[in-house]
Each structure stands twice: as structure tokens, then as C-alpha cells.
């Protein structure tokens, strides 16, 4: 496949952008891609990544959408509005991930698929992650016990969960 722009070099950069729910693919050589400011994920061009994310989130294309309440809600930690994140493609702080969890979910899914973190866990706070994973496991067992109508076992598990939840604060 040749580059759509110069039609000379082989296309090595393949961009898939979501635009109004429609997938638009662009195939470029690296030279044209970098001239166009398009981006290979992971390269060191933060501006173009921001542009791309902006378009992921539906902004940047001159399409004026009604400002829903979500657009005007802001992150309790840094104060940034979701509207601004859409415009710039830049999050304000780490807590924005929690504050706008639902709004960000579709674009994060588009970038990363359904994947979950399996890498390093920080030493600090790592304990909490382990406890949280333990609690999730217990909750699963609790449901199973209830389904089997093993109420004594269920009560035991419920107490374990309560204890763990106390420790995690």
C-alpha cells in the first residue's frame, strides 16, 4: 500500500480515528505523517497526541455539541472542566481519570482496548491494591455461597470483607 498523501513511498503509518461514530482510516508514509502532524502512538509528539485525543473525544472538528451537564462538571482536585479536556485532549491531573471515569471510558477503550494493568504495582498503596483484589475475590465467593444457600458460610465471608474494608479505610 502506498502513502495516500505523496503516493510515492510505502504507507507505514496507519491511523484510525473515530469521527461521529464512524471509523476513518488514513495510511501515510512516516515522512508525510510527521509533516501532517499525525501521530504514531508512543512517539514523542505530545501536541499531536493531544490533537488526536481531542478528536477521539469528539472535539476539534468544528462540530458544536450542546453543552451537557457533564461538559460543565469539573474535577474536584484540579478544577478542569470536561469541556476543556475535550478541546485540548489534555487531562488536568491524575484524579481526572476518576472524576470523568465514564466520559473517558470510550476513548480509553479505543486506545487500549479492554486491557487491564498487569505490570508493576507501587510498594506504597500496593498493599491496598492487594487488599482490594482480595476483597473482590471474597465478594465473588459471597455471591456463590448465597446462591448455594450456604448462609453460615456467607456470614463468615461477609465478616472477613468487613474486616478487610476496615483495614483499607
Amino acid at each position: 500500500m502506498y502513502c495516500e498523501e505523496c503516493k510515492l513511498r510505502p504507507a507505514t503509518v496507519h491511523l484510525a480515528q473515530m469521527f461521529n461514530g464512524q471509523k476513518i482510516e488514513t495510511h501515510l508514509c512516516e515522512q508525510c505523517a510527521s509533516q501532517k502532524g499525525a501521530i504514531i502512538f508512543g512517539a514523542d509528539h505530545q501536541l499531536s497526541i493531544a490533537n488526536l485525543l481531542g478528536s477521539f473525544l469528539g472535539g476539534n472538528y468544528g462540530i458544536q455539541e450542546a453543552r451537557s451537564p457533564v461538559q460543565n462538571s469539573s474535577c474536584p482536585n484540579c478544577g478542569i472542566k470536561f469541556f476543556d479536556i475535550r478541546q485540548t485532549g489534555k487531562l488536568g491531573c491524575a484524579q481526572c481519570y476518576m472524576a470523568f471515569e465514564q466520559e473517558l471510558e470510550p476513548s480509553l477503550r479505543r486506545i487500549h482496548g479492554n486491557r487491564q494493568h498487569v505490570g508493576k504495582i507501587p510498594l506504597r498503596g500496593g498493599e491496598k491494591v492487594l487488599w482490594r483484589r482480595q476483597i473482590e475475590g471474597l465478594k465473588q465467593r459471597l455471591q456463590e455461597a448465597v446462591a448455594r444457600e450456604e448462609y453460615e458460610e456467607a456470614a463468615e465471608i461477609r465478616d472477613q470483607i468487613k474486616n478487610l474494608e476496615k483495614r483499607t479505610g
Binding site: F41, I49, Y97, S107
Partner: peptide, 8 residues
């Protein structure tokens, strides 16, 4: 800061 880098 950029959502493309989350995870590791």
C-alpha cells in the same frame, strides 16, 4: 498525563 501511556 497523556492517556496513551497509562498502565506501565
Amino acid at each position: 498525563s497523556c492517556p496513551t501511556n497509562i498502565g506501565t
